[in-house]
Simulated scan of single mutants.
Amino acid sequence: MKAFFAALMFMSRIPLPQMNISKTDWHKSARYFPLVGLVIGGVLYLAAITLEQFFPTTITAFLLVLLWIWITGGLHIDGWMDLADGFGSNKSREQILEIMKDSRVGAMGVIAAICLIGGKWIAVYELLHQEGAVILLLSPILARFLLISAIYFFPYRNQGGIGEGLRVNLSWLIIFLNFVFILSLSYYLISMDGVIWLFITAIFSGLLVVTIFKKLGMLTGDCYGALVEWSEAVSLFVALALWGLM
């Protein structure tokens, strides 16, 4: 349970009692990232149902995006901006990594953040308008499943960094069980459309990871954060596309 709480404390701002989290607990926490996604998604879904009783859809969508940012502490947006700065510089591999490590945010990072937040706002509005709030429950789970898949299948930076040691405690079985969990939940909530939604989102997320890997030859903590944000945003738009086709 300490490993789960380590994951929850790191990936969310949900209030928890103080506890002593060891390095071993942190290294074991990755297996629980999708479960943290379930907690985040549950909060978003319940908030959507509640806020719609008091506000018009536009305001509800805006407040939900703010809640989404707050509950994660902006952790993954930081990685998204750093990746945008690095890749937007069109520099060599070594220079990109240096730019990504810089705590300052450049123009490309700001533009990427505006596009991401604006895109999520519009997508959430449209989903609420089409009674698709259930995607807010599923999206954070899927994004964090794709995160642990990237951690397991792609090499991390050589040494140092907050992601060091996470891969050691992942396995094929853990990946498979998490896959069965998100697949079953998606099918239960939105039938075969949920299965199609999952696989299409996974394809687009996989393209991002492969692109990063081809350029850098590895992933970093910023890449992990960017993957989560990308996967969440893509999942919203994929859901809207499926709704449109229906």
Rank of each mutant, 00 (worst) to 15 (best):
R167L: 03
P17A: 09
N90R: 14
G109R: 07
D193W: 10
A133T: 03
R144C: 10
G221I: 00
L147P: 03
L138Q: 03
G165L: 09
E126H: 13
R144M: 08
V39S: 04
L207T: 11
I182A: 02
N90E: 07
Q53N: 13
F62R: 00
D78L: 05
S231A: 14
I59H: 02
L219F: 04
G41S: 06
A239Q: 02
A47N: 05
W172K: 14
I59Y: 08
A239V: 01
V168F: 11
L51G: 03
W68I: 01
G86I: 00
L170H: 07
M246G: 15
L147W: 12
S12D: 03
R93C: 01
V39F: 13
V124L: 08
H129K: 13
F213N: 12
P140C: 04
N169D: 13
Q159M: 07
L236G: 01
Y125R: 12
Y224W: 14
L136H: 04
A47Q: 02
V124P: 02
F4C: 06
V65E: 06
L183M: 12
G160D: 06
H129L: 12
G74H: 02
L166D: 02
N178Q: 10
Y45T: 04
K120T: 01
E232I: 14
V39R: 04
W68R: 13
A7S: 11
N158I: 10
V210F: 09
K23H: 10
I99M: 09
G41L: 08
I122M: 13
Y187M: 03
S184T: 15
I69D: 02
F181Q: 01
E98Q: 15
M81F: 01
L177Q: 11
P34H: 08
V234I: 15
L67A: 08
G221S: 06
M19P: 00
I14P: 05
I190K: 05
G79V: 00
G86T: 03
N158E: 15
W121Y: 15
K214D: 10
K215G: 00
S171E: 08
Q53H: 13
E164Y: 13
S29D: 07
W243M: 11
A202Q: 02
S89I: 02
D222S: 05
L227H: 09
W68Q: 13
V228H: 10
